[in-house]
Amino acid sequence: MARSSPNIILLVVMLFMRGAKVPGLNFSLGATVLPSVLGMGIAFGGMLTLAQYLMVEREDGTLLRAKAIPNGMTGYLVGKIVLASGWTLLGLLLQLIPGLIFFNQVGVNGVGGWLVLVAVIVVGLVATLPLGAILGSLFSNPRNMGLVMFPIMGLIGVSGIFYPITQLPVWLQWIGQIFPIYWLGLGMRSALLPGQLAAVEIGHSWRQPETLGMLLLWAVIGLVVAPMVLRRMARRESGSSVAARREKAMQRVG
């Protein structure tokens, strides 16, 4: 449950934002934030959950155990991917269901809307999980999680999650559009908000083909790079490296 509490906090914040309006439109800002936050949730769940598992379980020896067992690494990764996806979906539902009840302006736009919603979730997870594996492999110390969180928080700021991206300077808009967080938010908005809201987006459009394209691009990059990084990490895992990390962790506590 602790894992889902940020989702609930965000939901409460959005409820308080109901009164605020989207600039230039008579539409609740809270209602537009909900789909964006759902998109952000996929990015978070995909990247951070998996990264965190890899960092923590590398320290306690779970990964080394997996390495000692035939096909153990593959089994371990499949398990963690399923688990991270499950947590992400659970968090998503915890926001989506109350959101659909409280914000009557938010709704799935028919069969097409459902298809878009499912597509964004699936492609989003495929795009972000490999990135999580890469992050988790590169940072060996769970206490360095802050280093990972910091740039991601910055990215959220320029990804149009809590405020329309068109209100930002153009160069920041470009940075935001490089990363999947923006596209996940946009994809979710296109599935859950009325068509008129596209007016505050870049190009006054939901840009669904571009969304799909960018997310698939990230998926391809991730799926190519992640196995290489994971293999390198697994190769370097050894009894002495686990012992050294434990030693370091003990020093910090003591």
Partner: peptide
């Protein structure tokens, strides 16, 4: 992997799978 299956390894103080 087939080679790995023929080995057993017990290190000092494992803490995993609690």
């Amino acid at each position: 992997e087939a080679w790995r299956a023929r080995l057993g390894i017990v290190l000092q103080s494992w803490r995993d799978h609690g």
